[in-house]
Amino acid sequence: MPKLQLEVPHTLPQNEAQDRLQRFTESIHGKFGDQAKDVTQSWSDNVLTFGFKTLGMRIDGNIAVEPEKLVVNGDLPMAAMMFKGKIESEIRQQLERLVRV
C-alpha cells in the first residue's frame, strides 16, 4: 500500500496549532463538498486521526502536532497511487492555510 507522508512547518505555539487543526476535516469537506464523504476525525493526545472517502477510495491517516511542524502519515489504496501527488498537495494546502500566521 502506498504511503502518504509529508511535513508542514509552522511557527505557532503547539497548543494553538492543535486548536486550529480541529478544523482540518471541516476544511476538507468545505473545499471538496460532496467529493469528500464519510469524513471522520478523532484525537489522542497531540495526534489527529482522520479519514475520508473520495472517488470511491478511502484515505486514512494521522497528523502529529509537533512544536514546529505537522507530520502527516497515512496509507493510500493502490487505486489512489496515480493521484498521490494531488492528494498530498491538497492536504498540504489545507494544513498550510490552517496554520498560517
Rank of each mutant, 00 (worst) to 15 (best):
K37F: 01
Q5A: 13
E7H: 15
V39A: 07
A36V: 08
Q41W: 06
L6G: 06
V47F: 07
T49G: 03
V72R: 03
I63S: 05
K84F: 04
E7D: 14
H10Q: 11
D38N: 15
K53P: 00
E96F: 10
Q22S: 05
E66F: 12
E26Y: 11
S44K: 10
H29W: 12
R100N: 13
V65C: 06
D38T: 11
P9Q: 15
G74K: 07
E16L: 15
Q41L: 04
Q93G: 08
R97A: 15
I87N: 00
M78C: 11
A36F: 05
L76Q: 07
P67S: 13
E90P: 00
R92M: 04
E90N: 13
G30T: 02
Q5R: 14
N15W: 11
R100L: 12
E90R: 11
M81N: 08
V39F: 09
V99E: 04
T11S: 11
I28T: 03
S27D: 09
V101I: 09
I28D: 02
T11Y: 09
V71Q: 04
L95P: 01
T49E: 10
G85S: 09
Q18E: 13
K69T: 06
A36W: 07
R23V: 01
T54D: 02
V101A: 01
H10D: 08
I87Y: 02
K53W: 01
M82E: 01
W43D: 04
G74M: 13
D60K: 12
A80S: 13
M1I: 06
D45K: 15
I63G: 01
A79F: 15
M78L: 13
A36Y: 05
L48H: 00
F24H: 10
A64C: 02
V71D: 06
N73S: 04
L48W: 11
L21Q: 00
P67V: 07
E16Y: 12
L95G: 01
G56Q: 12
N46A: 05
T49D: 04
G61L: 02
V39N: 05
R97L: 12
F52L: 08
P67T: 05
R97E: 10
I87D: 00
N46M: 14
E7L: 06
S89Q: 10
S44Y: 11
S27M: 12
T25V: 13
L95M: 05
Q18T: 03
F52P: 00
A80Q: 04
N73Y: 03
I91H: 02
A64G: 03
M1V: 10
S44N: 14
D34E: 13
K37V: 02
A64Q: 09
F52Q: 00
P2M: 10
L48A: 05
W43G: 10
R97F: 05
D45M: 14
R20K: 13
G51Q: 09
D19W: 11
E16R: 14
L98R: 06
E26A: 15
N15K: 14
Q5K: 12
I59N: 02
A80V: 06
T54E: 00
E96P: 04
L12W: 12
Q14N: 06
E16G: 07
Q93F: 06
K84N: 05
S44P: 01
